[in-house]
Simulated assay, not measured.
Amino acid sequence: MARSSQHSATSRLPQPTAAEVRAHLETLLHNEALAISDRNRRFLAYIVEETLAGRGDRIKAYNVALTAFDRTDDFDPQTDPIVRIEASRLRRALEHYYLTAGKADAMRIEIPKGSYVASFSYAELEPAPSFDGESLRMAGALPAPIARRRILSMRKPPIWWIASLAALLLLMLGWLLPVMVDGAVGRAKLALNGPSILIQPFETGAGDAQAFVARGITAELIGRLSPHDAVSVLGQGATGLGTVKPDFVLSGSATTIGGKIYISAALAESETGRYLWSWNAERTLTGPDLIAVEAAIAGEIADGIKPALQAAD
């Protein structure tokens, strides 16, 4: 309930004007604390201007590639994932900036997942402290509690009726589930091309203030392996109901402590659980360019597991 109230209060905040958005964009594009490449600065400027002009429906991967990434007219977003990969990097760079150097900025520019259309908002204020009724009464702000009225409980349905309904549902589930799973497995196997790998989200230590680095390494790994047709990269949702069983599972962790990051990764066969490859490393986090550190770590892991994937292919 408290979350709903806070969301309602936030939704009533006025939206930034176009002039305010452009002024904040200009500050971002010339701020070295926002660690992004020159083409991602063009990417950010393009989607902000198109959104402000009311042309959000035109912000597609094809138009972004031609305008910001200097691709030619024969660009195919189905075979070249450059826009999707760079959008993920830009989202994480903005997230890191607003958590660190830009946490005091008056407004935010964000790129919601699943879209390239920018969104603009004022920075949320810290919620006011809440007090329970007892504290307010102690301060004299509330009268003494009123005696509670007795609330009559609703009559419970007969137990036999609940048991009968549960049995009927179980019978229906037992008949439908094998049919649904068999069909899903067949469709999934036809769609896979070559050996398949499930990249599990990299774990992080409890209380890690830079937990987003682990998410960044996971995203970089998916981006590095997806363009290769010889490997089918699966997401968590594809294996949630057992409809697809990957050939390999890649798991790992990335924890930042002080100015260092400690990484571990392991590749295992899904069928046997046998580990084929493992890797541990320690890297120093220098400067604001965490995106480059994430990309380098993902590159080392991808190069390490490729021999096992090629042998399976």
Rank of each mutant, 00 (worst) to 15 (best):
Y275P: 00
G207E: 09
K245E: 14
S251L: 10
S232I: 11
V213R: 10
D208I: 10
R224N: 05
D247L: 06
A266R: 14
K189P: 00
R215N: 10
T239M: 12
A265W: 01
F202R: 13
S270Y: 12
G235Q: 13
G216D: 14
V213K: 09
K260S: 08
A265M: 04
A238D: 14
N280C: 00
A268V: 14
T272M: 03
A254Q: 02
A211D: 08
T218M: 08
V233G: 08
G194F: 06
A188P: 02
L198A: 10
V244Y: 05
Q210A: 15
A266N: 06
R283Y: 09
F212N: 02
P227D: 07
T256G: 01
G258E: 06
H228S: 02
T272W: 01
G205K: 12
S226N: 12
A268I: 06
G287D: 07
S251G: 15
P201R: 03
D247K: 04
P246Q: 03
E269G: 00
I199Q: 07
T218Q: 11
A238S: 15
Q236W: 02
R283F: 11
L190A: 15
A265C: 03
L190G: 12
G205E: 13
T284P: 01
L192R: 15
K260A: 14
V231F: 13
G194T: 09
V233K: 05
L192S: 08
P201D: 07
